[in-house]
Design a binder for these strands. Sequence first.
DNA 1: AATGTATACAACCGCCTGGCC
DNA 2: AGGCCAGGCGGTTGTATACAT
Length: 329
Amino acid sequence: MGRSPCCDENGLKKGPWTQEEDEKLIDHIEKHGHGSWRALPKQAGLNRCGKSCRLRWTNYLRPDIKRGNFTEEEEQTIINLHSLLGNKWSSIAGNLPGRTDNEIKNYWNTHLRKKLLQMGIDPVTHRPRTDHLNVLAALPQLIAAANFNSLMNLNQNVQFDATTLAKAQLLHNMIQVLSANNNINPTMQTNNNLFGQSHYLENQNLFGQSQNFSNILEDNHEDLMVKSQIIDHPFDSFSSPIQNDVQHDRNSLPLLVPASPEESKQTQVVIKNKDMENYHDTSNPSSSNSTFTQDHHQPWCDIIDDEASDSYWKDIIEQTCSEPWPFHE
DNA sequence: AATGTATACAACCGCCTGGCC
DNA sequence: AGGCCAGGCGGTTGTATACAT
């Protein structure tokens, strides 16, 4: 169709808004509503295009906009939803009242993306980064980030040391990378599809908080239907959602969660989402509309101790395992 | 103190979609 | 059916500020 840009008229102001312009825009919208955005600038006495006015209003001036730093809970929500939806900023914003898609997008690009990279997690796939050097090099930053996070964390629900979590996450990542490289882990193959990312869906939390995102998604997305029976139990942070349809063979990655049966509550998630179709691994027919279950959790620290023959790895593992584990009582 | 560089985020650009005629 | 328009969306850019040298 070839429509022309709305802002190509000569003489219209661009760039940062002045306080006077803001006041004019707010005053006009409070009195008359925005009506037609194209007609608004003239009516409000603004030398701007309608689109610029709309963006200024929706991203900055709207009275219900929440200003200030993102909370850790908001961060976690963004990370979880991004793992499910990708760069669907408006959909993500729909789950964060008072936050705009633009703000979330900026925050992702400037903060969260780097945070994930530092932790050895690919911010696009939300899987561990696949080059070993990066994973190993991430250790100092990872621990530093975790310590920082510990300092910043005011959430009283956090029951254990964030450094321990960071170490556990790193080790988990490394093992996954090794397993993937050996190309003998069916779980990793499955992880290439949507559901490999949905470990966030089931309480995946980099910072040790728990959250049921299935409910959020179900409640807030018209195009997203997530039926979940997830029972909220904290610190399933490292569990993979795709474990139990696949026999737990010795090459699959054990779970970083408690082994006690009473804590291993069945999880069943059915996802049908047009946004998610992009994530489906077309080579996997089951991924287009899938049900997966989880009812088996196994602490992997013990198993690793038996299987790690290399002394270097054993040292790391032993050091990590000597720390209190993030297993709640 | 001056300059260079990195970071954060507001704002813009261009494309897409859906509604209306 | 096709053109036009308004609004939405995601990617990118521009600019102010912070920090390093």
